[in-house]
Computed example of a mutant assay.
Amino acid sequence: MNIKFLAVSIAAAACSTHVFAAEIYNSEGTTLALGGYVDVGVGEKGADDDVDVHTYSPRLNISGMKTLDNGMTVDAKGEWSINYLDGGKNTFSTRLGYIGVTDEMLGRMVVGTQWSPYYDVGGVADMPITFANDFLYDNHGPMGSARANKMVSYRNSMMLSDDFEVSLGIGWQGKNTATALADKRGARTQAAISLKAMGIGLGYAYSNGDIYVSATEGKDAKSQIVSLYYGNYGDGIYVAAVYGKNDYFYQSLKETKQMEALASYGMDNGLNLNVHYERVDNEDTSKKLSSNTSVNFEYSLTSGFVAAAGYKIDLGDDDPTTEDDNKWTVGVRYYF
């Protein structure tokens, strides 16, 4: 069997296939690039029913890379959320900040705040600009379900044949002694494995570590997540499904399960149509916590400039005191 090792460099899984960065420096094996995007929309995307002007997830990033004499590459990235609609408030807040080392045979190690191996598996349906995943982002920094605070990670991939790739990832976060109960936890570990062949991807990830459900009581917070997808988002047919089971991992609840699905079709004229579905259940009480579906449209007006629109239908929960809350939004995104 001919096994080919690949250097793995997994950046943030953006909610679009468009990835732009302007190289501002390149000399003697060292590069520096500026990237990100700004966006703006009008609609009912927020927590209330008021129509307002809002953003989706604007960001600015700076990344650098240097090739060493031994063939390894060292890279660093800083990324910040941009708040440019509310005057007088903080403009930037940290999204990512890490340093990585990559070797073609040995793989890639990253230290800092980064997208986690767990998200490599769980984020395959988190694609639309307007309405996408919610449950992965519940306290994700300390729990490492999407972006992971202060993580050490390792990834590598192997081509077992011309069209069969195996990817592995592990991550570790140290103990957090924050005073806020939502962030207070013990050390966390996670591991992920993904298989890809003939355009089909299958992944599994596991996360484990202690959290505090009260000032003095700790629980073992575990999560298992599996995903299946086909195709490339924005290019023809793309379908993805995600299923997760948790113990004290989501909102510190004893037992929960999560489901997500995405079906999209990207046309040659730049139009991408997709339907997204998400649901979270409290298995301990046999109650539905949330469920929704959305129809989303994205259209590339020109390179780096995308129009987007979405309508989110609240499918309800098992809490009789809450009302269905449908949302809509129309906006544009400009990539640097």
Rank of each mutant, 00 (worst) to 15 (best):
W172A: 14
L202M: 10
N292S: 12
V166K: 12
A191R: 04
L262C: 13
A187R: 13
A221V: 05
V295T: 11
R188I: 10
G234E: 07
G201E: 08
Q258R: 10
I200C: 04
N232M: 10
S286V: 02
A205Q: 03
S294E: 08
N282C: 05
D281N: 15
A240I: 12
A205T: 07
D162G: 15
A178G: 14
K287A: 09
N292W: 12
L301I: 12
N176H: 10
T285C: 00
N272C: 14
N246W: 01
G209N: 04
S207F: 02
L289K: 03
L273W: 09
A215T: 04
V226I: 14
N232Q: 13
R279Q: 14
N232F: 06
T189W: 07
K222I: 03
E298N: 15
S227I: 04
A215F: 00
M198G: 04
S194M: 13
G201L: 02
Q258H: 11
K196M: 10
Q251M: 06
L271T: 08
N282I: 01
A215V: 00
T189L: 05
H276K: 07
V239Q: 11
Y212A: 00
E255H: 13
G244V: 06
S161Y: 11
L289H: 05
D210I: 00
R279F: 00
I170D: 03
T293N: 08
R188S: 06
I170C: 09
Q173V: 06
V166W: 08
A241K: 09
G169R: 14
V275E: 01
T285P: 01
D162E: 15
M259I: 08
N208F: 02
A197L: 00
Y243L: 01
A261Y: 07
K175Q: 14
S252L: 13
G201S: 14
L228A: 14
L195P: 03
L289W: 02
K257W: 05
Q173M: 14
D284F: 07
V213E: 02
L202F: 13
I200P: 01
D162L: 08
G171T: 12
V166I: 15
K245M: 10
D281H: 08
Y233N: 04
G266D: 07
V242L: 11
Y250P: 03
F297S: 08
S264M: 12
S207T: 11
V275W: 04
T256D: 06
G171R: 12
G266E: 05
E278R: 07
Y212S: 00
D284Q: 13
N232Y: 09
S194V: 07
T293H: 03
K245R: 13
Y230P: 01
V295Y: 03
G231C: 12
Y204G: 00
Y233F: 10
N208G: 00
I200S: 02
L289D: 03
V226F: 11
W172R: 14
R185A: 12
N269P: 02
A263Y: 10
G231L: 13
L273H: 10
N176E: 11
D220K: 12
V213L: 00
G231F: 11
N232S: 15
S223N: 09
A221C: 07
K254N: 11
D183M: 08
G171D: 09
G231Q: 09
S161D: 15
